[in-house]
Amino acid sequence: MEFVEALGEVGWLDAMMNSSWGWPAVESLHFMGLSLLVGTVGVFDMRMLGLGRGISISSMHGLVPWGVGGYAINVLTGVLFLVSAPDQYLYNPAFQIKITLMGIAGLNVAFFYCFVFGPAKAIPSDADIPLSAKFAAAVSLTCWIGVIVCGRLITYYRPPYHWCFWC
């Protein structure tokens, strides 16, 4: 929290985010990062759910590092929003659900690399996908769709105008 406040006071960041172009520019980058994530991790998830049978899981995984890049862009740009108006986010139910879903997606990534990816990349490219891989893919897609929905809804649940039963 102190870190968030300290970053919010960095002069040039503050000036950029309060300029007429700063906020929309960072929002645009945030959407590009999310498109990169959906286009790589999302497409990889769809492959594990059975779309694109014939493409091996391990070769499809080549897209994923670019998704990590998209994720990094979005953490960076997301932090910029957060530090510019912390109370608009921290007490915002849409933001809280978004962060929770990101946490679940993070745990799912750990589950995937610990238990699922090893066996899944060894199967032939047109074999049936193991249930554990389908499960991880479904959790991932659901979480990221939820993250996009909640992200878009943040603006509708700005405190203190909106009632929220756990805030």
Binding site: S35, T40, G42, V43, M60
Partner: peptide
Amino acid sequence: MAMVVGVNVAIALRILGVAGRV
């Protein structure tokens, strides 16, 4: 929009050589 751009990004990345074994 994320679905449309996402799939197009995936195809563009593949054309550019990412995930070359696909």
